[in-house]
Nucleic acid binder design. Structure first.
Lengths: 144, 144
DNA sequence: GTCCATGCAAACGATTTGCATGCGT
DNA sequence: ACGCATGCAAATCGTTTGCATGGAC
């Protein structure tokens, strides 16, 4: 069994409490999505002096090493523990991000790509089910 | 036949020279990718006083109306005329973006999505063919 | 002991906002 | 003529950089 600390070391990085804590947080919430600020807010609890810059650096390193995944939406980088391709659905209304699975064996994503692939993200902008329901409800109210 | 100006009008927007020029530029270079700054540089030729802010506003409106597509990479918004889903391959080395086609009927992308889809982008980070070749060549040179 | 990581402050760059003027309808 | 669009300046926000101190190996 490979610990998070081993993973960090195996990628040529030194193990520090900050790095362990950040990787653990993202990995243990694999279906969730975090901005750098979200991660900073979490690490600050145990580590009151850690500046945002350090969190930004650590996150970027983890992405470069493939330890976590990231994509950008609404002008911000979003980090997640799920590294295999899936759909990140971004709701224009509530700004939440939801994961959905892709169909099939995923090879269709990279079949025509000429070059070396590091990571693949599918981002869908739209209106989520919750917001659709609420918008529908408020339209009915207005129509009364 | 629907002109670009008609398309703008049909989406509830007023037609102005700035808007026509921007939409035409992006649509006539459908396989290319533009940052807001790229677009601004082009419009400024005919329109020396147009501020970046106006270009940003126009681009964002076009995306919201589905007239063009956009995605974000390396901290910047990128605009393109191709609105149907395809692969945007971003080379970490040369920073160029290349289009590749997706396989099949594309329904696999949104099959599991619960909500209303506005747009779908597939972004692949990697190293492009050109850079792979150059990197390989320079490794051989070093090994001599 | 050496080198890399952290902590901190300041800078940066892409984008947004507010407001007066101008133009499309 | 009305209302939205443009032009302009300033502000905002996420992120990056430079440098001194501290901790991992």
């Amino acid at each position: 069994m490979v610990s998070l600390e081993d993973e960090i070391k195996q990628n040529g990085l030194k193990v520090t409490p900050q790095r362990s804590k950040i990787l653990r947080y993202i990995r243990e919430n694999s279906g969730k999505h975090f901005s750098a600020e979200d991660v900073h807010k979490h690490v600050v609890i145990d580590n009151p002096n850690i500046p945002p810059a350090t969190v930004y650096n650590i996150l970027k390193m983890f992405v470069d090493r493939g330890l976590i995944n990231s994509f950008e939406i609404n002008g911000k980088a979003i980090y997640e523990g799920r590294v295999e391709p899936h759909v990140n659905f971004s709701c224009e209304n509530c700004k939440n991000i939801y994961d959905f699975d892709l169909e099939g064996d995923l090879s269709y994503l990279e079949k025509n790509v000429d070059g070396k692939v590091i990571s693949t993200s599918v981002t869908v902008r739209g209106i989520c089910r919750n917001c659709l329901n609420e918008l529908e409800a408020s339209e009915k109210t207005l129509a009364r």
